[in-house]
Every structure is written in structure tokens, then in C-alpha cells.
Design a protein around this nucleic acid. Structure first.
Lengths: 336, 336
DNA sequence: GTGAAAGCGCTAACAT
DNA sequence: ATGTTAGCGCTTTCAC
């Protein structure tokens, strides 16, 4: 069995008490230099590492933070995680990543598990399926620090970071209009997600600003958020077989953008006929054919800001009551 | 502060001893039905959840397994993780994911941290930078169960799963030959990785089998494994500016395949001029332009097999001494 | 300057 | 059928 050296082992070997060893190891002021040296040297020799499990139990503090996201396979999230870890590790925190696969139940199980594992705080981007946040609210009321990023919820008052989804959607839609398109459809993610609403609102505003009609029949929702390709293809096909069909599509979610590109290809539509622009953070969007204009979010930076906020919350001496919501700019990349 | 109910709380409230409560909760045979009901009901009421930290400390068993991979952003790995989790969760295990970003030091820190956290076992795909495996070997000798997948090492005798890299590379190279190419270059990952060698060997065999010369000057290594685009572009440019330049490139690593596609685009080469085929697991390879034939690994399945092996190791009643290495077929997807 | 003892939440021998 | 005790590895009063 794998059995690392413990403080007790060291104490025994050196004929000291465990408490002395503990203090020496953590450079306690009361311990003589001599003893410290002795202990540190021996600890080094037997490759002693403090046991985080025991520490967690003792201190109710684990120096680990839990990350709750829908899917790792979504580039936006893997980029955000890189941002989170870049700071968390530097500050001595360990990260535990869990994915919900957009399932509310799995998300709940993950969050509960993390809470039990006594993570010091939670970084959450909510699943598309989730609708009941009472357990999260209870956890928050119980004092569990949490920060929401990208997909936030209104029900809980805490720090949040998102992108300027409205403006990003506005810009993308506007670019289609400026390219001469007049009948722009919207392909969106689950209708109750915060980001879906914000992006739809930006889309709508662009239409209105440019004197174009906002048509309900031009909107299609993919509730599985693009993780089911067929759902996306059906939606695209639905749009493109309309008697009065759109000449462009704005797609308001990452994975659906990819699905839409594939659908155009499979349905043999050309982007000359039907232009597309959508949110996408994959690092290969610019290489896709059919081509797509895309709105890119500052994922890495968002991760960094989120963890900074969480650490502020965790390490605060006094309870924080004033919460900020940071909104990051997006970048529009036009095709050609 | 967030403070969940403990067994002691329940015992106090019900005027029982902690051990009775503990036994009742775990349906111990010695406890009367009546008491059980009482305890379970109360536990339910106060939303009692056992504390995994305390359990880990007590049992030296955490029901969690550590995953060590180079990068989350690599589709192959996120797919493998999905496979791992699909089984781990079902069997009641929690997964902790860490990425090394191909850094040997980060990898070592991650592994040590996981070991300290008393994970029950490790699922490892080695970083490209790693070369010293003595600490891993020591950990293994100490009894830490581990299984290697995809990027394995010979130094440690345990269960392993990989793809048939040699055959995959052979098939891809062969497809280029059959398409009429005669001067096929090799763009490879770090030269000491197990997979790099296997794939190079398959590439070489195809050349030999078809009577083509194996040319050292047609081989380029990207030691950063495609995570540094410039390195890839430089390599591609190097090949394509040779006096006697190749008419095709076989790429032996996932991220480098993507980098090569981008390089061809940036350097304005067409795949009519220079055909490419490479290992790639991204779910959008087939949509890329310039187009690329690709070898896909069974990532999800590999993850599933790896975790099955690890659980076998963890849950074994008697020490296992006979280790299997599973080799999975790859799928070749031709362009057009 | 160092040691003894208690306790974090839980379980398992060992009483009763 | 239930309670007592000790201990997992660590820290932290409180003694000396």
C-alpha cells in the first residue's frame, strides 16, 4: 500500500513530539533553529508532504476550488479553465473540474459533491437544463462562496462575470446587415439561459436600428445547446425550407455555430446564398468551410477574473456585501 | 459559514451514540428497524450527507480517481475523459482532472498532489516533456494503482491502453501513396513519446512496402506538440521550401494536424499541390479547409477501457501481477 | 523550547 | 441492540 510519511513518523524517528514537528515544519516562532533544521532535513529525506485530507478535516479549509461547467469539449470552457488555473495554482489553490453535460441532475450532484469535499468556493457556469436553483441558494446562504461566469443566474446575489452578449450579438447581426442581408434568422440555445436572452436582445436591436422587421418565425431554439447535431440540422432545414426563407443566420451559441456550419455543408447550401455569423470560441473556426463570421469571447480572461473574484470572497476578512458584475467585450471576426 | 450536519449532531438530537447512528445510516445488521427508521428520517430531514474528507482520512480510500493529461483543449483528451467519467460515476467514483500543459514539472506536481489527496488510483497520459519517471515508479512501487492510456511508458509494468498507432500511421501513409503521392514527409510530435515512435514506424513501413525511399530530411519534429503554432508553421515552411520538396505530409499528432492545416492556408498552399493526412480527433476536422484526411482514435472507448482496468486494479482482492496492454483500432477518414 | 491532550467526522473493535 | 473508545494526520490550546 502507498503510505507516505506522517508527522508522527518524523516525531518518532527524531524523538520529538508530533506538535514540535508540526510547528517546526511550519516555521513556528517558538521552535529553536536547531530543531527546525533537524526536522526539515529529515522531512526532506523521507519526502514528507502534509496530508491535505487531514488538513481539510482539521481546518475546514481545503485550498481547493470547484469548477462546475456544462462541457469540457466546448472550447470556451476549456479556455476559461486554463485562465482559472493560471491564477489558482499560483495562489496555492487546487482546482477540481466537473461537467454537467447540460444535465440539471448531474450538475446538482456535482455541486453537492464538491460542497461535501469542502472546496473553499465554487466557480459556476450553469447548465442549460437547470431551472431550480433553490439548493444552490441554500448553499450560498449557508456561506459557500460562489462566483458565476458566462452563464449566470439572477437568483443569487454574488460576483459575476459575463461577456457583453448583447453587444456581441448586435455587432454580428449588424455585420450581416452591412453585408446586404435583409432577412436574418436567429438560431439560439435553450431559451431560458441568461446568455440566450441577452444575445437575442442584441440581435433584435440591430434589426430594429436598421429598420428591419423582427420576425418570430425566423427564430429557432436548440434546447440541447448544439450537443445534438440532428436538432441543429432540423432547425436549419426548417429555416431554409420556408417559403419566404432567410438570407442569413445569426447563431447565438458556440456549439450550435459549429453544428450550423456542418448543416449547411450537409444540406449543400453555400454561404453565398445564406451567410452565417455566430458566437464561437473554437480555435479553428477561421478554418471552417462553409465559412462563418464569429464572435469570440475572452474566455481565458473571463476565467482569470472569475477566480480573482472568488479568491477575494474566500479570503475576505469581513463578509462582502457589495457585489460586482464584470462584463467583458467580445471580438468580432469577419469572414474574408 | 457553511456547516453541514454531522453524525454527532444526529446522535445528540436522537439521544443515541454516534456509532449507532453510523451503523443505522449504513444499514448495519445489528441495528433495530425502529432505530434505523428514526435515524434515516432525521438524517433526511437535516439533509445529512456523509463527509467524504473524514471518510478518506479514516479509510485511506476516497472513491476518487485522478486523471493526468497534457491538455483539456485537445479533443482527444476531452473525449477520453467523457469515457472515463461515464463509467467512474456509475461505479460511484469521483474524478479529479489535472492538466500538465506538457510540462514535466506541472505533471509531477499534479501527480504528487493527487497522491496526497489519496485518490484511489491514477489514469495517466504522459506529457511530452517528461523524461524522468523515477518518482512515478516509486509511487507505483508504493502501491498506487495506475493505468496509462494513449501516451504510455515502458518503465512501469501495469495495465495500458493505446491505439494501434503503427497501423493507423501505416494506413494514412498508404492512402497518400495510393493517391499518387511519392514524396511523403513526416511531421511529428516530440521524438521520445511512445506514440511518436510507433507512428513513425508505421509511416516508414508503408514507404518501404511500396518501394519508396525513407528520407531523414523529410522528417520534422515539433517538440511542443502543436501547442505552439509558429513551431508548426516553421516546420511546414521548412519542408515546402526544400529544393526537392515533398508532395504530401503525414502528420503524426492531433494538434499538429490542425496547425498544419492552418500553415498551408497561411502559406497559401493548396492540398492539390500538397496533400495532407494526419492523426486528429477534433469533431470538426472534416469541415476544415484546406482539407485533410485523418486518422481518428477511439478516444471515448479508450477512456472507458482505461477506467475499467484501473477499477479492476483498485478493487482487486489479491494483487494483480499479470498486466494486459489493450491496443485499439483507429479509423481512417479519407478526404472526399 | 517542547510535550500532552483534545478534536475535526467517521468507523470498527471491543464492551455491555 | 446499543454504547465506549480509539485512531486516521494534523493543529492548537494549555502545561511544564
Amino acid at each position: 500500500m502507498y503510505k507516505p510519511a506522517t508527522i508522527k513518523d518524523i516525531a518518532l524517528a527524531l524523538n520529538l513530539s508530533p506538535s514540535t514537528v508540526s510547528r517546526a515544519l511550519r516555521d513556528g516562532y517558538e521552535i529553536s533553529e536547531e530543531t527546525k533544521k533537524l526536522v526539515v532535513a529529515y522531512a526532506q529525506k523521507v519526502n514528507y508532504k502534509s496530508n491535505p485530507i487531514a488538513l481539510s478535516l482539521k481546518n475546514k479549509r481545503s485550498y481547493s476550488i470547484g469548477i462546475v461547467i456544462p462541457r469540457l469539449a466546448n472550447s470556451f470552457f476549456s479556455q476559461a479553465i486554463a485562465g482559472i488555473e493560471s491564477i489558482a495554482h499560483e495562489r496555492g489553490y487546487f482546482t477540481i473540474i466537473t461537467q454537467s453535460h447540460e444535465s440539471a441532475e448531474r450538475e446538482r450532484a456535482n455541486i453537492n459533491h464538491l460542497a461535501q469535499r469542502s472546496v473553499d468556493g465554487l466557480l459556476i457556469s450553469i447548465s442549460s437544463e437547470a431551472s431550480d436553483f433553490s439548493f444552490l441558494k441554500a448553499l450560498h446562504d449557508d456561506g459557500m462562496p460562489m462566483v458565476f461566469f458566462d452563464r449566470t443566474i439572477d437568483e443569487i446575489d454574488t460576483f459575476k462575470v459575463t461577456s457583453d452578449n448583447r453587444k456581441g450579438a448586435y455587432n454580428a447581426t449588424e455585420s450581416l446587415i452591412k453585408a446586404g442581408k435583409r432577412k436574418i434568422a436567429l438560431l439560439a440555445s435553450a431559451s431560458h439561459l441568461s446568455i440566450t436572452n441577452e444575445r437575442r436582445s442584441g440581435y433584435q436591436k440591430a434589426l430594429v436600428d436598421y429598420g428591419l422587421p423582427f420576425r418570430e418565425d425566423f427564430i429557432r431554439y436548440c434546447n440541447e445547446g448544439g450537443n445534438n447535431y440532428q436538432e441543429v440540422e432540423d432547425a436549419v432545414k426548417g429555416l431554409l425550407t420556408m417559403a419566404d426563407k432567410p438570407d442569413a443566420i445569426f447563431i447565438s451559441a458556440d456549439r450550435i455555430s459549429i453544428g450550423c456550419v456542418r448543416a449547411l455543408k450537409n444540406l449543400s447550401f453555400d454561404t453565398k446564398e445564406i451567410a452565417i455569423a455566430g458566437f464561437a470560441n473554437s480555435d479553428v473556426v477561421d478554418l471552417l468551410q462553409p465559412s462563418i463570421s464569429y464572435v469570440k469571447q475572452k474566455s481565458f480572461e473571463m476565467g482569470q477574473i472569475a477566480i480573482e473574484m472568488l479568491l477575494k470572497l474566500i479570503e475576505a476578512k469581513y463578509p462582502i456585501t457589495e457585489f460586482e458584475t464584470r462584463v467583458l467585450d467580445t471580438e468580432l471576426h469577419l469572414v474574408q
